[in-house]
Amino acid sequence: MTTVGLITPEPDHPLLAATAELLRREHRVVAVDPEGAGPADRGPLADVYLLKARTPRALALARGLEARGVPVLNSAGATALCQDRTAMAQRAAAAGLPFSATRTFGTLAELAADAGPAGPLVVKSRHSRRRDLVARVDSPVQLRELAHEWADEPVVTQEFAENSGWDHKVWVIDGRVFAALRRSELSPEGRGPTLPLASGQLPSGWAELAVDVGEVFGLDVYGVDVIATGGGAPLIVDINAFPGIRGQAGAPEALAALALRRAREAVAAA
């Protein structure tokens, strides 16, 4: 029997709950809240852990588990890399991925004090987290208004690429590709519904591009936000470690199979 640990404060998350239900038919599942007070990495260990949380305490817990030789998916290092949008852009550019050109500013106030955007810009928090800053800015006035609320926020900017207003959400679990369309939060109508999309309906080469992202970033479970530019070429605007992947048929099965395989590999390598 394999024991699978879930590093999350929300074990009832739809993807995790469905995965746990599958695993519990023959295996054991334990949830570990990384924000809890106990030293969870010092007690009896699971055979493999799924790192759904991305807080500093979650990453510290994951590093402690890895130091004890336990596989963590995704690794603490890969997860942390995807939280720093500056480092993310640098890694993508070095690998030749079609990633949006990114500039970094120490604070939004520093950006606002600059000459201002020459054209539409997307301004994002440098450090990806829940309820972070993601906004389209079309003028210096808008930028100053944004800086009034987020003055001390470290930010990155990306040129706004004209597109259909819909993001392609491409998710990968151990090389298996899932996809959906979602109206961008930057569109005039605001974020809209998520529409299922078979991986075969992605533009040619996009599924392979998403798999390449995992190899470049050392990720097993991740999401890639891609837009089609005016000429139809893909442009990656964000990469997320262990996203929600809600409502995707086959995703819980793929995640359960990944966890069990990595646990078996760890035992064989010991």
Rank of each mutant, 00 (worst) to 15 (best):
L195C: 08
A93P: 01
A94G: 12
A256N: 03
V155S: 00
L143K: 02
A210H: 02
D167M: 05
A207P: 04
C82F: 03
H127F: 10
D114H: 15
L195R: 13
V137L: 03
C82D: 03
E189Q: 15
A101Y: 05
G231Q: 09
R176M: 13
V224H: 00
I7R: 01
S139K: 06
R25W: 08
G244V: 06
V170N: 00
E253H: 06
P98N: 11
L195S: 10
R91S: 08
L16N: 01
T2C: 07
A259M: 09
E149C: 11
N240V: 14
L133M: 10
T194M: 11
D84N: 12
E10P: 05
A251Y: 01
V213M: 02
V237Y: 00
E26G: 09
R68I: 06
W150I: 06
A257I: 04
L197T: 11
P252W: 02
A233F: 02
A46T: 06
A254I: 02
A60H: 14
A92K: 04
A233C: 04
L6W: 02
G119H: 09
R131M: 07
E149L: 13
A269S: 15
A161C: 13
T3E: 14
D167A: 07
P243Y: 09
T3I: 13
H168L: 15
K124Y: 06
E153V: 08
G247I: 08
Q158A: 04
A113N: 05
D138V: 10
W171L: 11
A67D: 13
L181P: 01
P71V: 10
A147K: 04
L186K: 04
G247L: 11
A266F: 02
D47T: 03
G106N: 13
A58Q: 00
D84P: 00
T157V: 12
I245A: 09
A80H: 10
E162C: 07
G64R: 14
R24P: 04
D114T: 14
V213W: 00
I227C: 00
V122T: 00
P39E: 15
R68G: 12
P98S: 09
F160D: 02
I245G: 02
G230N: 02
P203W: 04
S204H: 12
L59Y: 03
D138I: 10
Q158E: 06
Q142R: 13
D174Q: 05
T79L: 04
R54K: 14
L186C: 06
W166R: 08
W171E: 13
A112G: 09
G223C: 07
V211T: 11
K169C: 08
D12T: 13
A115I: 06
Q248K: 15
A40V: 14
D33S: 12
E153I: 07
D167S: 07
A37M: 12
Y222S: 01
G38L: 13
S139P: 01
A37V: 15
